[in-house]
Amino acid sequence: MENEVVTLAHGAGGKQTSELIKKVFAKHFSNPEFTADDAAVLSLGDGKIAMSTDGFIVSPFEFKGGNIGKLSICGTVNDLACMGAKPEYMTCAFVIEEGFPLAKLEEIADAMEKTAAKVGVKIVAGDTKVAGKGQVDKVFITTTGVGRIIPGVKTSGALAKPGDCVIVTGDIGRHGCTILLARENLGIDADVTSDCAPLWDAVKAMTDATHDIHVIRDATRGGVGTVLYEIAAESNVGVELDSANIPVEGAVSGVCGMLGLDPLYLANEGTMVVIAPESEKDRILDALHKTDHTKKAAVIGKITEEMPGKVVLTTKIGTKSMLPEPGGELLPRIC
C-alpha cells in the first residue's frame, strides 16, 4: 500500500471500488450491522431518536491532535450528544481526490475506527466517490449519525433561562488556533493541540448527575462567542460573561496576542457550552471534572434578562463591555 494512490477507477463502482472498500473501510468499520447492501437495517427500540449530519473539509486534513477522520466522527457524535442522545449508528461518505495516497486514507479510516470504538458508535454504511485532480481538496467526509435520546433529558438552544449558569467544558480556541497555525504561513511556533474529541462520555456523566440541563451545544465553527450569540437569540436572553474566568491555554492566548485575535471566536472540536440552573452547577462540574477531555470545565458567566440577544463581558476594570457580534472571515490584525 506504501506507494498506492486513489485513482479515478477506485470511484468507478467496479471491482476496484469494492477492493478499496474491502481493503480500507470494511477492515476498520466492520461490525454485525455493517452492510454491503444499499442501506443498513437497524433496530433502535422505543423512545426518541436524534439524527444529524455534517460535512468535513478541513485543510490541512492532518493536524496536531487529529485528522479529518477523527474530526468527522467527533463532529457528528458531539452533535448527537448535545441533544442528550447516545450515538448508536453512523454512516460516512467520502469524496477523495484522485491521486490521494492509500496509506493516508488508511490512517484516516483507522482514526475513525478508534474514535467510534471509544464512543461505542457503529459505522454501518458508507459511500466512496473519487473526484478528478483539483476537483476536491484531497479528501472530504460527510458523516450522518443516529442516537437514542436519554429519557427525561431535553436540551435546546431556546431553553436558556435568566439565572442559569454558563459553563464551558474546557479551555477554548485550541482547534481553531491549531488549524490557523497549520494553514497560514505565519512563522509562529506554538505548542497547541486541537481539542478534537468525542464528548459523549461527558454528556453521559452530566446527565447521570442531573437531567435538569437546559442547553448543551458544541462550540465548533465561530467558537464560544458565536454559540453564545446563537443561544442568546434563540432563548431571547442576555449572556453575561466574566472575562477573568474564561479558560484559555497560555499558548493560545500568546498566538491570539500576536495576531490580534480573540479566542472566543476560534473553533473548538471537543468543547461544549452547557447552560443549566444555578442549583445544578456543582453536580455538573463534578461530573465533568471526572471525565476525560472536560477536566478544565469552568463556569464563565450567567444568563440574564437584561440586553436580550446580546453577550456582555465583565472587564478587568469592573465595567461591562459588549462582546462584538461575530461575522466575516477571521483576519489577523497587525496594525
Partner: peptide
C-alpha cells in the same frame, strides 16, 4: 521571542 508559549523569530 516567546509570548506565553507562542514563539516566533
Amino acid at each position: 521571542v516567546d509570548a506565553s508559549g507562542a514563539k516566533r523569530e
